[in-house]
Write a protein that binds this DNA or RNA. Structure first.
Length: 656
DNA sequence: GCGACAAGCTTG
DNA sequence: GTACGAGCTTGTCGCT
């Protein structure tokens, strides 16, 4: 490894203020511990050798800040910089670090969950109330990035807050180049561990400085009190997600590798068919440019659908539309389907694993503007569902009758142990129930009180008929309600004219007048309230475009407000339930017998020791359904389980 | 060779 | 004028 470091790099940066110190020996470390021990809060940040805490990445240094006698100080302790510089031993400092982090005082961090993972890896737990300034930033304004330096500029008005980060970035690019690595690869492998201590130390000190100042700023703006319900849920959820990510999801790697080669063979066969048997000119099917060229020039298809940038679209919808024109089109569809699965859902999942075949996703509490969770590395929230048509073609029966999808991805998501079933609880039609609550529409409320099939009821109300075809249309409308549906989309989805669509929707809003009023009243309220509103949990959302003079922008803002209100409430419900379940696990003594493993918007997944299964199931169902605030609408969860894998989950019935 | 963007696909 | 919210992948294009 090659290193280069010239102190002159700092010449153009702001001076290293007197309240910041790089801790270079054990005496200084003890003085720091003594100072921070008496601070009413402790702000911390870890610098690491990468972000993959579940693999090689570990702490190379820690920064702290706190106050004593009105003095605000920041410290950086270097432990494992691979620069040859003298530094402190982590194990020798561990008891001092524990003294600071395991006490009951307030802990503050920006992106708390990451640092908590890093400390847990070192055997240090973090106690006391948590305050994550990144989450507070998102509550303060969900429409701009919550990155630390970005908020130091925007919210604290520190104009040069980005300078040290820029200096670090320049250094990292230099180091990557010296080591002949791409910057992304370098950052993954080494993180900040090769940064000279002076540079990393001043950078890290400013990070805890900004973080503490953001804490003061958001508290001056009453974030944790004005939004106490969502704020407290988020702070509790942070620890639950930490557990969930640490537990990880076991993967059947052999299955995925087999599936990948099976899909590659299918792709080769399709290519052979197209370019050899059918004598079609060879082209790259994955290139939309080349595919468009083929459809237009070789097959002379009259393409009309356009992309956002006014190109002719060649998506799966177009291929399906023209499939009767030429037999090549269905083959191309099949190739694209196999290609998608092979590239996105087989070995790319395996690449995210640790040494024990577990994937540890990153659940993002600030990943969405509507306050749902997002998930990445890998994203477990968009794993393909098994396909009925493929199941019938392969096994002769559909999925409901235990047919098998030969290209199933979910089959790879296996249980941890045969005596530890995985349980899935999902809220039944939660968004429509929430709409029924907000609108108090009498027809909808009554349908839920009666336990009716809501799509059939809509079908009957709008079309005067609840046969299969009409129920399907009703379902399109019902789902569309959560998105602020347009008549154009309904027309396209139902394959009817825009006039017919408008007529049906008018009929719908006539029958469900409460829903119509709810939408209009919500828009009017937001308009008169400067684009700001909150949902039943007190979650804020700002949509300034609701007052735009541009009809397109305003209509979009109206759709967004409906969607945020409904989806956001459902998301909040699931998050609050995750916290409630965690608290119940603690109070019922189920620690170690139950593990959270995943959550997908309106669903939670736990691994549960079979011995405590009935008890745990009863607890979960009770706490998930116990939301009095939605009265009279009943909140219902469905339970499923598997003893093998995700693909084979089945309805769960327990004796009363 | 890299970053940014567009398109397309997968979920709830 | 063909919905709401996400994440991931490939191809393309312009820049260094």
């Amino acid at each position: 490894m090659v290193f280069q470091y010239t102190p002159t790099e700092f010449l153009n940066l702001p001076p290293f203020q007197g309240n910041k110190e790089i801790v270079r020996n054990y005496d200084s470390f003890e003085r720091m511990v003594h100072f921070l021990e008496l601070s009413p809060f402790i702000t911390f940040d870890t610098e690491t050798s990468g972000t993959a805490w579940y693999r090689h990445a570990s702490i190379c240094g820690v920064s702290f800040s706190g106050i004593l006698d009105n003095a605000f100080k920041c410290f950086y302790i270097p432990f494992r910089h691979k620069t040859g510089e003298t530094q402190l031993s982590f194990s020798r400092c561990a008891s001092g670090l524990k003294k600071l982090l395991e006490n009951d005082r307030l802990k503050i961090a920006h992106n708390f969950k990451f640092d908590e993972h890093m400390f847990r890896k070192e055997g240090i737990s973090i106690n006391g109330p948590r305050y994550d300034t990144m989450i507070a930033a998102h509550i303060y304004n969900e429409n701009v990035s919550a990155a630390l330096k970005n908020r130091a500029v925007l919210d604290l008005n520190i104009k040069d807050a980005q300078l040290y980060e820029q200096a670090v970035d320049i250094k990292l690019k230099e180091l990557a180049k010296l080591n002949n690595m791409k910057i992304t690869e370098y950052k993954y492998q080494f993180g900040y561990s090769h940064l000279p201590i002076d540079l990393c130390g001043i950078y890290a000190c400013y990070d805890v400085d900004f973080t503490t100042q953001l804490y003061w700023f958001y508290e001056r703006n009453h974030i944790s009190t004005d939004y106490s319900r969502v704020f407290n849920t988020e702070m509790d959820l942070l620890g639950v997600l930490c557990d969930m990510e640490e537990n990880g999801m076991p993967i059947d790697t052999d299955y995925l590798f087999d599936l990948k080669s099976k899909l590659q063979i299918v792709k080769s066969q399709v290519e052979e068919n197209l370019f050899h048997n059918m004598r079609i000119r060879n082209f790259n099917i994955a290139s939309d440019d080349e595919l468009r060229n083929f459809l237009l020039n070789d097959l002379s298809l009259p393409l009309t659908k356009q992309t956002k940038k006014f190109q002719l679209s060649v998506d799966s919808d177009v291929l399906k539309t023209f499939s009767s024109y030429h037999s090549a089109l269905s083959l191309i569809s099949k190739w694209k389907e196999a290609d998608k699965l092979a590239n996105t859902y087989t070995d790319s999942i395996v690449r995210c694993m640790d040494s024990k075949n577990l994937v540890h996703c990153d659940f993002q509490q600030i990943g969405t503007i509507a306050s749902r969770l997002s998930c990445r590395n890998p994203n477990l929230q968009n794993q393909p569902t098994d396909d009925d048509d493929r199941a019938i073609e392969y096994s002769g029966v559909d999925l409901e009758h235990n047919g098998i999808d030969p290209w199933s991805i979910r089959r790879a998501y296996i249980v941890r142990d045969k005596s530890w079933p995985r349980i899935y609880w999902d809220y039944s039609q939660i968004e429509l129930r929430i709409l029924a609550y907000y609108s108090q529409d009498p027809v909808m409320v009554q349908a839920y009180l009666n336990g009716e099939d809501i799509h059939s009821r809509t079908s009957l109300e709008v079309f005067g008929n609840k046969d299969k075809a009409f129920r399907r249309l009703a379902k399109v409308i019902n789902f569309g309600l959560s998105y602020g549906m347009t008549e154009y989309h309904f027309a396209a989805a139902a394959n009817i004219t825009v006039e017919e669509a408008r007529e049906f929707l008018n009929k719908f809003f006539e029958r469900y007048h409460g829903v119509k009023l709810f939408r209009e009243n919500l828009w009017e309220y937001i308009r008169n309230n400067g684009g700001y509103f909150t949902n039943i949990f007190g979650r804020p959302r700002r949509i300034p475009n609701i007052n735009s003079y541009n009809i397109k922008d305003r209509s979009r803002a109206e759709r967004q407000s409906i969607a945020t209100h409904i989806q956001g409430s459902a998301g909040e419900l699931t998050k609050e339930s995750l916290v409630r379940i965690h608290k119940a696990i603690m109070s019922e003594g189920l620690q170690g017998l139950v593990f959270p493993v995943c959550t997908i918007h309106d669903e939670v997944q736990y691994d549960c020791c079979v011995d405590v299964l009935p008890k745990f199931c009863k607890i979960v169902k009770t706490v998930m359904e116990d939301y009095e605030e939605f009265k009279p609408i009943p909140i219902i969860v469905d339970s499923e389980y598997t003893l093998t894998n995700w693909s084979e989950k089945r309805g769960l019935k327990l004796a009363a």
